[in-house]
Computed example of a mutant assay.
Amino acid sequence: MYQASTVSSRSPAGSTHLRGAESNETQAVRLTNREKEFLQWSEIGKSSWEIARIVDCSEANVNYHFNNIRRKFGVSSRHLAGKIAREQGLI
């Protein structure tokens, strides 16, 4: 009986989580022009430091934008974010 109540208490939370994940996948990711620019530089192998020098901003600013990009795509690397952005025709 205890086990049944544990299962039922997990089911709604699990299904809500799945619905949330599905809605994130179906929502179109929108990138700012700056985020697109930084991803394009990253795609050709430029580091945060190099991108900062090219666009005349701080390295912290570049990393801030990459954090936002990774969050928007739900990934942990800028390279994976770049791959997804290319696949979706964003860059």
Rank of each mutant, 00 (worst) to 15 (best):
W41Q: 08
V62S: 03
A81V: 03
K83T: 07
I54Y: 09
S11E: 12
G14P: 06
W41A: 04
I51H: 05
L39M: 04
R53C: 02
G14M: 12
M1C: 09
E37P: 00
G14K: 13
C57P: 07
F66I: 07
F38E: 01
S23Q: 14
T32N: 07
N24D: 06
T26E: 12
K36Y: 05
N24W: 03
Q3H: 11
Q27L: 15
G20S: 08
Q3G: 06
K46F: 07
E25A: 05
P12T: 14
Q40P: 00
G45V: 10
Q27M: 15
G82L: 01
R53I: 02
V7N: 11
N24Q: 01
G14V: 13
A85R: 01
R86T: 05
Q40R: 03
I91D: 01
G20F: 03
S23N: 14
A60I: 12
S15T: 14
K36V: 04
F38S: 00
T6K: 11
L39P: 00
R71Q: 08
N68K: 02
S76T: 09
Y64F: 14
S11T: 15
K72N: 09
A52K: 03
N63P: 10
R30S: 11
H79K: 12
L90T: 15
L90P: 10
Q88V: 10
T6E: 08
A4L: 11
E25L: 07
N61K: 15
A28H: 08
E25N: 10
R78W: 04
E37L: 05
E22G: 08
R70T: 10
L90W: 13
H17E: 15
L39T: 00
Q40M: 05
I84F: 04
N33E: 14
E25Y: 08
I84Y: 03
S15I: 15
S23F: 13
I54M: 10
Q88R: 15
A81D: 03
E87M: 13
T16P: 06
I84G: 02
